[in-house]
Design a protein around this nucleic acid. Sequence first.
RNA 1: GGUCCUAUCGUCUAGGGGUUAGGACAUCUCCCUUUCACGGAGGAAACAGGGGUUCAAUUCCCCUUAGGACUACCA
Length: 503
Amino acid sequence: MTPVRVRFAPSPTGPLHIGGVRTALYNYLLAKKTGGTMILRIEDTDQTRFVPGAEEYIKEALEWIGITLDESPWHGGPHAPYRQSERKPMYMQYAMQLLESGNAYYAFDTSEELDEMRTRLEAAKVPDPKYNSISRMEMKNSITMPEDEVKAWLEAGKPYVIRLKVPRKEEVRINDLIRGWVMVHSSTLDDKVLMKSDGMPTYHLANVVDDYLMKITHVIRGEEWLPSAPTHVLLYKFLGWETSMPQFAHLPLLLKPDGNGKLSKRDGDMGGYPVFPIEWNDKATGAVFMGFRESGYLPEATLNFLSLLGWNPGTQEEIFSMEKLIETFTVERIGKSGSKFDIQKAKWFNQEYLKMMPNETMAAFLAAELKKKGVELESSKLVRICALLKERVMFLKDLPNEATYFYQTPTSYDAELWAAKWNDEAKLVATEWKKALETETNFVAEQIKHHIHDITEKNGIKMGKVMQAMRLAMTGVGAGPDLMQIIEIIGKVETLKRLGNVV
RNA sequence: GGUCCUAUCGUCUAGGGGUUAGGACAUCUCCCUUUCACGGAGGAAACAGGGGUUCAAUUCCCCUUAGGACUACCA
């Protein structure tokens, strides 16, 4: 397998969407599988959209999910810099090259003039108004203007952009790894701006130039880029880089869980589930976007969930660690259609990973959480608690709350259950049980159960009839793991105290 | 509107010219049980429609429909 060079190229305009994380993941998997290189490049050519903190967010999010970078703005690499803003001086020469070969031209139109053009074309019922081989002839550019005038304007410092001169009649083909051959006629393409008037390249020029310079072999990106891919192909051709053009793979989108459309920021807020890997505090608006991490999802579970959204191994396996993914992943098995984002499945994965988590690991987490509440328990006890609780919680963060009765004498009892279950029989059993336990020296679940068993039998009461009441007395709530185990962990002193409280 | 992409249970998906169309999540029933959960067993649940091609189409082709993306001096 030839080692690939792939890149994930986010723009630092806000928090990284979970779909972006998936894109990064697929890139990463291919890189690792082939023993290749994973590159991160910051696409910050739009200085007006720069959002402070976004870069750090991207870094942190990728680290959290377990994606490591071989080359990036933070790690450096042989093709540094990895921020397009820092590569600014590199782009103009390629624009000039295109200008010289007649594949690009200067355009001086103001935004007002562009608007006018659009309204004019719309009025003329042109189906798709755009700056192209026809309309460019009506505009202020180096194709329509005399050469010396262009020169004069340039020298006078008139603002200009450089546009790609898209050929009038040409079939542009692109062999997408996921979709196969896609053919677009150049007449449907517009003369994309390559260099903006602020001297920065647009995405189109920058990504082609950088991918070429960074020797990228595979461009794996979202489907939203498919429509502009033919423009990029044209660019490779005009720059003379056709033979080193990367292979393209346009990933299907992540869709809203209900209804239609692609997954957006708002969906998370409305549905009460995260659509971002980690929490993002929007400093401009003060809004907080919830993250998988903060919502209690384990990175392993999030990773597993994400990996299967649009890709599948072709087998019935579905628990995948990063290592397993790297081993199993192939671009061929990426699907073509968009996937609806189903948070239920994410929850299930989280539960699965929680069940696999060693009790000791879980106990360490519990200990830290309890410490915040000023509660300290011996670690052996915490491990036993976790063993009992691990299969009943969906999230790690539910643990402290679920474990309340292990460290806190009930201050109240579930009222409805109390009314239904607490009766004379229950009181009798509780009283006798307490008495029996007082003299028990071997305070273990088996013995504890043995006593209540004897008591109910002796009094002709079915154990099942009073167990709920006993649970209520001991924990205050109606649900939980095996009561005898709970009691054993709580210990004799506390148990007698709790029983004493109800009899 | 235009260009492009897509179409198997509610969801993620496997499959593929002849199958009882498979799995998982969710859902329902039952079992286990001191409760809840876990676990176990089972159920319901899909090839968007219409034309071709073919002995045979859910699978291949075309059209329709539906959905999606893009349509900026944003990425």
